[in-house]
Write a protein that binds this DNA or RNA. Structure first.
Length: 107
RNA sequence: GGAGUACGCCGGGUGGCCGCGCCCUCGCAAGAGGGUGAGGAAAGUCCGGGCUUCAUUGGGCAGGGUGCAGGAUAACGUCCUGUCAGGGUGACCUGAAGGAAAGUGCCACAGAAACAUACCGCUGCGCGCUCGCGUGCAGCAAGGGUGAAAUCGUGAGGUAAGAGCUCACGGAGCCGCGCGGAGACGCGCGCUCGGGUAAACCCCACCCGAAGCAAGGUUGUUCGAGCCCCAACCGUGCGCUAACGCGCGCGCUGGGCGGGCGGCCCGCCCGAAACGAGCAAAAACCGCACCGAGGCCUGCGGCGACGCAGGCCCCAGAGAGAUGGCCAUCGGCUGGGCGCAGGCCCAGCUACAGAAUCCGGCUUACAGGCGUACUCCACAG
RNA sequence: GCCGGCGUAGCUCAGUGGUAGAGCAGGACUUUUGUAAAGUUCAGGCCGUCAGUUCGAUCCUGACCGCCGGCU
């Protein structure tokens, strides 16, 4: 079972972008907010835009980020809302580096 | 052995840890077990179809596409076998390859002239004189020069000078005839010998209704405009009149007006059948993931594309979107080092790329490797 | 996913089968005590890339590349 739930609706993404706390690092931009009432686990959205690369590259980045989050939340379950936006540089960043960056950002 | 051509394929294997979608079974549930899960291009969206909705009584115009022949196919701009032209020593490759003696347009600059022409010229005759030039008329298109292109090429004859004017060899054209071929076309004979451009308009032949799965279906609701007008005759009803008749309404017919036939016209239909606009909409289910122009194997027919028959198989599918991440090891290729050699060691590289309605093609991207057939060169027997 | 449109000077855009332009911006000069404005003048482009048709392509045809938009 996955350790987090996906954000689904367009307006939820928009709300998190506007109201969430913003945090930037070389490869990623993060928006975080406290969990909404009714959330059973962390609610996460991952955005990988067209500027990152072609479909194969975008899929790889998204899967790596999802893998890191899964590992992280299974060790330390957390209820929160999170939006991760991959920046273009993330395409060429190795897995270990990406994991370190994301884990540090999550605290 | 080297260089190359064509066709068909593969494009990592094994193991460990942590994970994901869908389906089935069990379970009240949390969950557990089992099965299954990207490509040759899934890409670009360039063609062709299936499917869905709209339109459909028919015709025309406009528009778009294709363009050697015959065939294959559900269809195609694709494929196959040929023809012709061009390229290559060759195996083979490439070609939007109908029509320019239907018509119109365009062909810059240069050049006399780009469509029918004569600048420098050549020749004959006449005249003039300063006696080798000028000029008039007639003939010629060989030479010069310009251009991408100047009207068959070369040689000989011929002539005042010349010219397919004649001859030989060669080239081209369309028509006619004969022969061969299913045809494109080829061969022979006769005839003719004045450009190019149709990926310019165009002509000819053939083909095409429009949109697209965010199509569309099922499950609702609100609003807007609109319900028509005119008329001689005819029919009919009502009213007035003693009656002839008159008036009004309706119908039929005709005309108008409005609407529809997705670009236009003819023509047709309708006048309340239905039309238009919005919200719902942040939704669910279907379409849609088992049955197909399906895949694999074998046989038969065909030069081949392909077709037919039999057997076996069921083969990804969501709706923020699964098919992954990390590690080890074995491979593969390239380079370097060591070794007589089998081989060993080190380093680097291990591609292009990710289904969303489904098929058939085309095009583009791609580390590296395999197989079959054939060609040329070198060497050996 | 499906369907459209556009690439010309640093920027915004014309253009057409025959030597590629305009405005703004830039350089130099004139004018001014100086600056601005104005005027004169100069430079800047393989017309997105690669093939094909043509004597000749920015233009016509095809394939790629990049950018922008619409459809629930």
């Amino acid at each position: 079972m996955r350790r987090y739930v996906s954000l689904r609706r367009r307006n939820e993404f928009a709300r998190l972008r506007q109201r969430g706390r913003r945090q930037a690092s070389p490869n990623l931009t993060l928006f975080t907010a406290p969990a909404a009432p009714g959330d059973q686990a962390a609610v996460v959205g991952i955005t990988v835009g067209g500027s990152v690369g072609a479909a194969v590259v975008r899929n790889l980045v998204r899967r790596r980020l999802a893998g890191i989050l899964d590992e992280h939340f299974s060790a330390r379950p957390q209820r929160m809302r999170l939006l991760i936006i991959a920046r273009p540089r993330a395409a060429g960043t190795p897995y270990a580096e990406l994991r370190e960056e994301l884990v540090r950002a999550l605290g």
